[in-house]
Design a protein around this nucleic acid. Structure first.
Lengths: 223, 223
DNA sequence: TAGATTGTTAATCGATTAACAATC
DNA sequence: TAGATTGTTAATCGATTAACAATC
């Protein structure tokens, strides 16, 4: 029942939102939900939700809707949450440290193995139980392990070099928090960027207009 | 020469990228660029770039291309960079502090006025020169000033309440870093969310597939 | 059974790409 | 002038929405 030959990025971007909303519904004790109710609460049409899910299989029951628990599980599976992904952090400045201390990697199916930096003030120490090694040890650390993702929070001048080293060492993805657009040639390595600036500038544009056009991500229903 | 009646969110999301790429070109000393050269370096078609710019006016010269400096300035203007936007931060935990200390608000045309928290350990102090007030003082602080944006990095349970208070106090936008989807009824208030989880889960999906489909944001040209 | 809601195909809409006259 | 490249309209493509038979 797999048809996900060509899943568009638009659909991929919605999957985590489905997962998040279903988690909230689950926490709220909701057992069952229809595509139209879920759509209303997420600001999507029922059609779109059914069409999105149709890419991956059949998850509902006619005349009934979807079981929140099992749909959440299925989408988690699609997202790869149970694949035992691993991640290392490059750069333990303010942002890197904040992410290490706050972000729930395990809730998203990732295990945070280690952090790397060059400052003698942190190398050898631990941050929230995560060991910090010198960046020179990156290759030897990765050589012995399956590390899927490198999280980049290094200063901009070091970003491309560290990205190259991560790719050479065999990571499958780079989670890029630097404000530099990375150049990665290999087709089998994915770069996912979180550009704070782009986000704030988009907001800047929208509030400069008077906000006639609602943004893509919001307008949660009242329910 | 204004035609930006209905600018799609797809276009709005690309504007900051144009701005960032043009800034890099400017820094690299590039004076002039054609839509096809810019497109190649950004992974877009020349048509798309010209079509995007067409929403806002005429910025190039036939037979020549675009002057990097002035195109960057024009796009900055469209994004509202020179409008003197202001922002306050709610929540000075790890993430809030990291953003206050690292993020270049002024590069994006924003002035960071103050931060708010409830912990006696930070209230009354300064973070990177930014004064931290008690959250109780939010309304009185905002009453006297034009504050355009509230940046939310509070714990999830406090997120919706603080969002409501920001909206009631008259902000035009909320930059939401909490992992909660905010409910904001007013059509003239924009919520822009940075969901780390959604980003990581999308990356998780992509590396779980073998990466046949490149993500929207990357694949910078070789140049 | 009647009612509800899915899975899935078809229709519509919007965004991207192509084409080309205008013009630097 | 000839060549290059834009601004802008038209064509194509893909994503969203609508419709409805299947079925719980």
């Amino acid at each position: 029942m797999k048809r996900n030959a060509k899943v568009s990025t638009a659909v991929i971007r919605r999957l985590p939102r489905y997962y998040r909303h279903l988690s909230e519904l689950q926490r709220a004790g909701v057992v069952r939900i229809s595509s139209s109710a879920l759509g209303k609460s997420m600001g999507l049409t029922a059609s779109q939700i059914r069409q999105d899910l149709f890419c991956f299989g059949e998850f509902g029951q006619q005349g009934y809707g979807y079981k929140v628990d099992s749909l959440k599980e299925e989408i988690g599976e699609i997202l790869g949450i149970h694949r035992g992904h691993t991640v290392v952090v490059l750069g333990t400045g303010n942002l890197g440290r904040a992410i290490i201390q706050n972000f729930k990697f395990s809730s998203n199916g990732f295990q945070l193995l280690a952090a790397f930096d060059v400052s003698p003030r942190v190398v050898g120490a631990q941050i929230a139980g995560v060991p910090v090694y010198h960046a020179d040890e990156l290759e030897s650390f990765l050589a012995g392990r399956k590390v899927d993702v490198g999280l980049l929070t290094v200063p901009i001048p070091a970003a491309q070099e560290m990205a190259d080293r991560l790719v050479a060492a065999g990571v499958r993805g780079i989670w890029n928090f630097t404000n530099r657009e990375l150049s990665v040639q290999r087709q089998d390595v994915v770069v996912e960027s979180v550009h704070f600036s782009d986000s704030l500038l988009a907001l800047s544009y929208m509030i400069s207009q008077g906000g006639e056009d609602e943004p893509s991500d919001i307008q949660e229903g009242t329910e």
